[in-house]
């Protein structure tokens, strides 16, 4: 379910948090091209104070941010495309995520990794790359899509001494709405939605309704650690069938892992996953490969329900 709220957008919320972090906590925002047109989709306060522009040095750039974290400044490190995670991975994993285990001291860096998709994004920049990072210890991962969720994960980071990988999606920035889990007595299937696919939850629900299918729909904020809540178990016991849907690749990813965990937890259930196809997306329409559409989700649900 979607709850309409007349508050601030996700972008405004991020900007407010960042501004406050600079003013109240001596925090810093670090990254490349932060002051470029639009200040990272209006998520960065348009000011010089506390903003540290990096040279175009991925790998080293993440190292600078980690060093500032070791130095006690809890930096917000911005990667304008999640594809940059590939280049910045080593310091973020080896020097930040593993720091507490190896050294006992922490490197709490708030990593804002921004996903985008569509024909303007191309084969590299399209969508999320949070899955490979979930493989490594010491790095919690979340995918906030609403203002409230963003505030929640920021509070977590403030209290924690761990780094945090925040898998953002451009699709969320102009949104004000909040999502509520949708649980129904007669549901035939359970859906677990991650990242941008959550913005289609209402559309999916309505289309399924037309097909005579009622679904329980859960919105996942935390990807790692992923805690299986009682309501998920109750729903699975009722429906026996579920799909975990994410805005990234379907194979060998977090959605497959969550599906496996759920299926193991509630015996006798079938939990599958849905995501991007196992091929690179492209700029031309014929190469589109992104967040599964509501039609694709409905098709997968129908197949799962009818496949006895």
């Amino acid at each position: 379910m979607v709850k309409k709220i007349m508050g601030k957008t996700v972008a405004e919320t991020i900007r407010d948090i960042s501004k406050k972090h600079i003013e109240k906590n001596k925090g810093v925002i670090m990254g490349q091209c932060l002051s470029a047109v639009g200040w990272v989709q209006n998520t960065v306060p348009a000011q010089k104070k506390g903003i540290i522009e990096f040279p175009m040095t991925d790998v080293a750039g993440a190292g600078f941010a980690v060093g500032a974290a070791v130095g006690g400044r809890k930096p917000i490190f911005i990667l304008r495309f999640q594809s940059f995670l590939w280049l910045n991975a080593s310091p973020l994993i080896n020097n930040a995520a593993k720091s507490k285990e190896i050294f006992g001291y922490s490197a709490p860096v708030f990593i804002r990794a921004i996903a985008s998709e569509g024909i303007s994004s191309g084969p590299i920049h399209t969508n999320c790359y949070h899955s490979p990072f979930a493989h490594m210890p010491g790095l919690p991962i979340c995918a906030p899509m609403t203002p409230k969720e963003y505030k929640k994960i920021w509070q977590f980071f403030k209290k924690s001494d761990l780094p945090l990988l925040v898998s953002e999606h451009r699709r969320s920035y102009k949104e004000k709405k909040e999502f509520i889990d949708d649980i129904n007595k007669n549901s035939k299937v359970t859906l677990f939605l991650i990242s941008a696919v959550r913005f289609q939850s209402l559309e999916i629900k309505n289309k399924l309704k037309k097909l005579g299918i009622t679904a329980d729909i859960f919105h996942l904020l935390w990807l790692k650690p992923f805690n299986i809540k009682k309501k998920y178990i109750d729903s699975l016991k009722k429906t026996k069938k579920a799909i975990v849907i994410d805005s990234t690749y379907e194979i060998c990813g977090i959605s497959e892992h969550i599906a496996y965990k759920l299926m193991n937890k509630v015996k006798g259930t079938k939990v599958i996953n849905l995501g991007m196809k196992d091929r690179s997306p492209g700029c031309s329409v014929k190469f589109i490969n992104g967040t599964p559409s509501s039609n694709e989700v409905c098709k997968k649900v129908s197949k799962l329900i009818n496949n006895k």
Binding site: V59, V66, A68, V70, P91, N95
Partner: peptide, 14 residues
């Protein structure tokens, strides 16, 4: 060498 950018980041804030 991966300590070199980390050291620079540390120096930046200290």
């Amino acid at each position: 060498g991966d300590q070199v950018p980390v050291a620079a980041g540390y120096s930046l804030v200290n």
